[in-house]
């Protein structure tokens, strides 16, 4: 049985709330001892350390980040995505048939990604992402959540230089990414978060997204998935997400005015990962206020397990604030669980 289903035993009113890390975590802090990976990266670029030594530095940092999450009371943990250069190029590098191009801004952040270029020869991966999931699962006794970019966002973040049309491409990417998810699950990931930030900004792309997701679902096997939508108003697509073949939906409530109230009134037939702790601002919310806000929606949700997490990955915050947000997440979960 996956750890996902064992993570929290407390139940109040039939609904369990699990404190979860969203995805990324700051890979450096402000203090010199918190900048080992930065120094290792610089050493790698200058040829002073080997790839293997750099990987060891990554491994060490992942262990530290897991300790931080566990100490903060987080039940569903990630590796902080610290091996990723960025969402798109990390996936592209670990699949076949992609080249990596110049920098583009990642939404309205001051963070950038390298744009993949899609060729006619795209195909499944080299197993590196499954190895990463396996490492995470091995290093934690908590629920291991691996993360991958979804087919729609991958297509939108890439340049299509192939002869494949959009409809064929989205299905192909869905199948390739679904296979990766299957391998990540087999390697030990209890659940895989499929990030689709582009969809909310482009609700008109839903049919294309759905086609990609259908292919992904077919290829993912038994691995539980959590499609995550952030950086936009999830209320615009909520009704269409209901039928998505997913175990739980990750929604960003900081960009979605009125969404909690809508769910409190209409209910929702699927578990939700409440992305409600603001991952984009240092301002600290009150656990009590957030718990009160969620409570009314929570009782209208069908299912027995929901997650509480940040609105997006925490890498957009300085590390000390990211830690404080993790602590806030688990404090809020405790309040909700009674």
């Amino acid at each position: 049985m996956h750890l996902f289903f064992l993570a929290v035993e407390v139940t109040i009113g039939g609904m369990r709330i699990i404190a979860s890390a969203h995805s990324s975590f700051p890979r450096v802090g402000d203090r010199p001892e918190e900048q080992k990976l930065r120094r290792a990266f610089a050493g790698l670029e200058k040829g002073k350390i080997t790839e293997a030594e750099y990987k060891s530095a990554q491994d060490e940092l992942i262990s530290e980040i897991l300790t931080i999450q566990e100490s903060a009371g987080i039940e569903i943990v990630t590796d902080g995505l610290i091996r990723w250069y960025d969402h798109a190029s990390h996936l592209a590098r670990n699949l076949n048939g992609f080249e990596i191009n110049g920098l583009l801004r990642f939404f309205d952040t001051n963070t950038y990604f390298r744009q993949p270029i899609i060729s006619d020869k795209i195909s499944g991966g080299n197993g590196a992402m499954a190895d990463e999931a396996g490492f995470l699962a091995e290093k934690t006794s908590r629920t291991a959540k691996a993360v991958i970019l979804g087919p729609y966002s991958m297509m939108r973040m890439s340049q299509n230089s192939s002869s494949i049309n959009r409809e064929e491409l989205i299905e192909k990417l869905g199948t390739i990414i679904g296979s990766e998810i299957s391998r990540m699950g087999a390697a030990g990931a209890a659940i895989v978060q499929v990030e689709e930030p582009f969809l909310i900004r482009e609700p008109g792309g839903f049919d294309l997204f759905a086609a990609g997701f259908k292919a992904l679902n077919k290829a993912r096997g038994n691995t539980p998935i959590l499609p995550a939508f952030y950086f936009g108003d999830c209320g615009k697509i909520l009704d269409r997400l209901v039928d998505l073949p997913a175990d739980i939906l990750g929604l960003d409530f900081t960009y979605s005015p009125g969404l909690l109230e809508k769910i409190a009134v209409d209910g929702f037939p699927k578990p939700i990962a409440f992305g409600i702790i603001d991952g984009r601002n240092t301002r600290m919310e009150s656990a009590g206020d957030i718990a009160r806000a969620i409570e009314k929606a929570m009782v209208r949700i069908k299912g027995d397990t929901c997650h509480i997490t940040s609105s997006c990955g925490l890498e957009f915050l300085p590390r000390d604030y990211a830690i404080a947000k993790l602590e806030l997440t688990s404090k809020t979960a405790k309040l909700l669980n009674g």
């Binding site: 700051p26 802090g29 001051n110 990604f113 390298r114 890498e315 957009f316 915050l317 300085p318 590390r319």
Partner: peptide, 17 residues
Amino acid sequence: PGGLVRSYGNRYYYKPI
């Protein structure tokens, strides 16, 4: 002064508050 936030690759900047 805030704290360090990554921009891309190994580039970080202090994001103030």
